[in-house]
Design a protein around this nucleic acid. Sequence first.
RNA 1: GGUCCGUUCGUCUAGGGGUUAGGACACCAGAUUUUCAUUCUGGUAACAGGGGUUCGAUUCCCCUACGGACUACCA
Length: 512
Amino acid sequence: MNQGTPPRLRFAPSPTGPLHPGGVRTALFNYLLARQTGGTFVLRIEDTDQNRFVEGAEQFIIDSLAWCGIKFDEGVHMGGPYGPYRQSERKSMYRQYATELVEKGAAYYAFDTEQELDEMRDRMKASGTASPQYNSITRVNMKNSLSLPADEVRRRLGAGDPYVIRFRMPRNEELRVQDVIRGWVVVNTAQLDDKVLFKSDGMPTYHLANVVDDKLMRITHVIRGEEWLPSTPLHVLLYRAFGWEDSMPQFAHLPLLLKPDGDGKLSKRDGDRLGLPFYAISWTNPETGETTAGYREAGYFPNAYVNFLALLGWNPGDNREMFTMEELVQLFSLERVNKHGARYDFQKLAWFNQQYLRKIAPADLALMVRPQVEAAGWQTTSGFLEEVCRLMRERLTLVGDFSNMCIYFFEFPRQYDPEVVEKRWKSPVPSCFLSLADALERVDAMGAGELESVFESIVVAAGLKQGQLMQAFRLALSGEVGGPALFEMGALLGRDSVVARLRRAVEMLGHG
RNA sequence: GGUCCGUUCGUCUAGGGGUUAGGACACCAGAUUUUCAUUCUGGUAACAGGGGUUCGAUUCCCCUACGGACUACCA
């Protein structure tokens, strides 16, 4: 199938809201395969449902994928030889295809009103059918061009009666559909219904539009979510009815992304519930004005996010798990995609981010952290900031953690950890610190070495062990229990600040 | 309910007729560290159940259970 010609893949979301992580992963897998094979990657917008259109969703999709480093070759935002790439702009071409199917006997007009449809379903439920279908059995009792006399059909069409075009599903035919990930999937058409292909508002449904566009855009591989597996037989039948089966794309249905715990598929609520970002970039609902945090804004790295997503449902077959986009392009294969759903583990994502963060040079990290520093109103130099980054890098998981974890580098402790105060702030600690402050004032250049030796001399003079004073010293400087190497931290803060912090601590916490 | 898809440590997964069932996250313990983090070492922890096939099944087949998707003039 499609040998010799370079593959053409597409990502075809509908702009009904912000792009879900599952969508990002689908786009990623398509992208990886396109790059690997020297193929083309297309972004097509499936906006055939005018009622569900959400303002800004299309741009959000584009921006999200751009942030992830997923690039297109053709698409709604950049044009290309197979445009337009927005289905609403292709509206005029679908009717002819739907009509063609009617002419070939593979589809028919149906005039049933919503009410009549409901009545049919109620009737069938009442007589024991669990899921009523508009199919080869029931269609004879409905109002359509198969059940109505030809002249009435003509009259209704001529009079402009609203109608839809439905697929004429064969009564009982075994259908074999091949999926790259799942192998052969067999279904009987008796289980399928006469799906609407063309809606009364003049727009096609997904089923028709997707087949027609994939054909017209010469798509060779359809990689999409598992939720499409049940309707793939219909799509195959559509290709067949059009006489396009020879150039039908290969199908691959990706396993779902599941909730981190509990049952069901991953949803925005899971992020909300855990207080974690959910979308690639932040999203503001145009109707409610409500904003959902994004990974970009929270200080995650796009390559960490992509790395994490790539391993949900796919693996290279060995124990490696850190990959650049280039490596993913090289290693990816549909054959190694799992069949079962994968839970979305926020914790593992954080771990990936931490791994990437540690590889960032302090100077670069300083640049990334700058906006937070400014937002906090801290005055600093780039040199100082870089040093803080050098000291704190190992302790951060997210770039966004910086402003919370590094406060004491920029201002005096806001509070002193009560537990440490209780345990360490005892005589003669305060008076030692007063002496330490005095001694430091006589030092000209205070590096980590000088600080340590002065500290040491105070310790000796007081007849104590170094360890007895260290914790309290950290407390005086930062107010916290943990942190980077103490003397390096002190040296970075500078002599004057250290002296001031010591005196202030004694003032605040008393003399023991 | 029906159809389809699935089921290896808590999670992501490797493996595959004979293995001490491997790795990673998380968790726990120890070492290191003034401390937190890091790092290092170690540990707990899995083939859903039942039938076959086979000398042998976690691996192949069937059934059951469980989970999921779909079941719209939504995609």
